[in-house]
Amino acid sequence: MEFAAVQVNHRITLAARPVNRPVQPSDFRHEEAPVPVPSTGEVLLRTLYLSLDPYMRGRMSEAKSYAQPVQIGEVMIGEAVAEVVTSNDPSLQPGDTVLARTGWQEYAVMPAKGLIKVDGTKAPLSHYLGVLGMPGMTGYFALLDIGKPKPGQTVLVSAAAGAVGQVVGQIAKLKGCQVIGIAGGPEKCAYVTDELGFDAAIDYRGKDTAALVAELARLAPGGIDVFFDNVGGIIHDAAMSSLALNARIIICGAVAIYDKLESQDTGARWMRQILAKRARMEGFLVFDYDHRRAEFLADMTAWLRGGLIRYREDVAEGLAKTPEAFIGLLAGKNLGKQLIHVASPSVR
């Protein structure tokens, strides 16, 4: 396969840190740079689909976390499905498609070692960033390994219409649970009940903690057995007020407080509730489960082929749309997994 010669790499770098405020377009800079040249053992990649995820907000901050922040002037971090343009390693050939942390740019040079091949003939390439990728793995392992749902139990999922939440609720239904989703707006609530098969949905918009607690009491009078928290904030407080005995709480994200990362996270303290309910709360990071990727793929692929899992993607066109789409993601404007379509695969 021959690829046309390219001279310019369009990329988006971090221009400013949003300290205790929402992200805005001026926090990013659109740049042009020479296309990098691979050395021995490296490949030149062309980004096809770029994943946008809430964790990226944390990487814009210098607040202490589990990973180093993106530095001012660096390309914003992000995982992509990319196509090999040129290869200086025998394990990959031009035209191969791989998962790679290319960041917000059209071209990147990466070591071939560690890149994961993906096959666009077996599933849409975009799925490897969503239902067959990090969000799918997150929902699968966090729910099953930490939540341990049992038939007849009640599972509550925040951000239920998002990339992770939509997977979590459907797996919980497959395990015989009653599933309640929390989402923003009637369209998202209808999506999780009518299309994904959740038993109920709560629209959190315009409601305080007391109102959310009242709705949970109506929908789950016996309490919440498993709470999958993608959001934090008042939704977390409402769920913690509504736990069943021996509840399991999975902390997967806290998007409600991401615009205040440089301040102390204060709010209700739930030690007495955890004590009284003999509940367990545990944080989850998906890279702890990289070694079990094959286990996840076997189950998820079978569920998709059997029509047991539905999945929606929200795709913006063009790298230039990335900041706008990311800001929209943080504001909850997306429905399903947020992606950027950067380029199409070369014709073979």
Rank of each mutant, 00 (worst) to 15 (best):
D119M: 09
L308K: 15
A163Q: 04
Y204W: 05
R59W: 04
L216A: 08
A302M: 12
E42Q: 12
D119P: 11
A217M: 06
V192S: 05
A15E: 13
M110V: 10
L216Y: 03
M110G: 09
G206H: 00
Q7S: 12
R280A: 07
D237N: 10
L14C: 05
V35L: 12
Q166K: 04
G332F: 09
A183S: 04
M110L: 11
A63I: 08
K260N: 12
P34G: 06
M1F: 09
K333I: 10
R218K: 02
W303P: 14
I180P: 07
D119V: 10
L212Q: 02
H10F: 02
S39D: 03
G152D: 02
S263T: 15
A183V: 02
Q264T: 05
L212S: 06
F287V: 11
A142V: 01
D237Y: 03
V179H: 05
P90Q: 09
A112P: 04
L14S: 08
M76S: 05
A294I: 15
R248H: 09
E324P: 04
R29D: 14
S241T: 08
K175S: 13
P149Q: 00
Q170S: 03
K277T: 12
K333V: 04
A331W: 15
G58Q: 06
T301A: 15
G165C: 00
R293T: 13
A210P: 10
R278V: 12
L45I: 13
E324Q: 09
A210V: 10
T154M: 09
L143Y: 01
V192T: 06
W303H: 14
R29V: 14
M137W: 03
S263M: 12
G253M: 08
T301V: 15
T266G: 12
V155M: 08
T193R: 07
N334R: 02
D229P: 02
T47H: 03
K173S: 03
H30F: 15
K113L: 13
V164S: 07
I182A: 06
I146N: 07
G318P: 06
A244V: 07
T121M: 14
G233S: 09
H127F: 13
L335S: 14
I146C: 01
L245R: 11
A331F: 15
K113W: 09
V131F: 12
D145N: 04
R348I: 14
G336K: 05
S26W: 07
D265W: 12
R57A: 11
L50P: 14
A256H: 00
G73S: 08
W270A: 06
F284S: 11
P124M: 04
L115P: 09
E324C: 13
Y258D: 10
E313H: 14
I224A: 03
I77Q: 15
D96E: 07
G206Y: 01
D53V: 09
I340N: 07
D225C: 04
G120F: 03
S242L: 09
H291C: 08
Y107T: 08
S126M: 12
L285R: 05
E74D: 06
V192Q: 00
A16V: 01
D314R: 12
L330P: 08
K188E: 09
M134R: 00
F326Q: 11
G197M: 03
A161M: 05
N9A: 01
A220S: 04
A183Q: 02
Q24C: 11
L174Y: 07
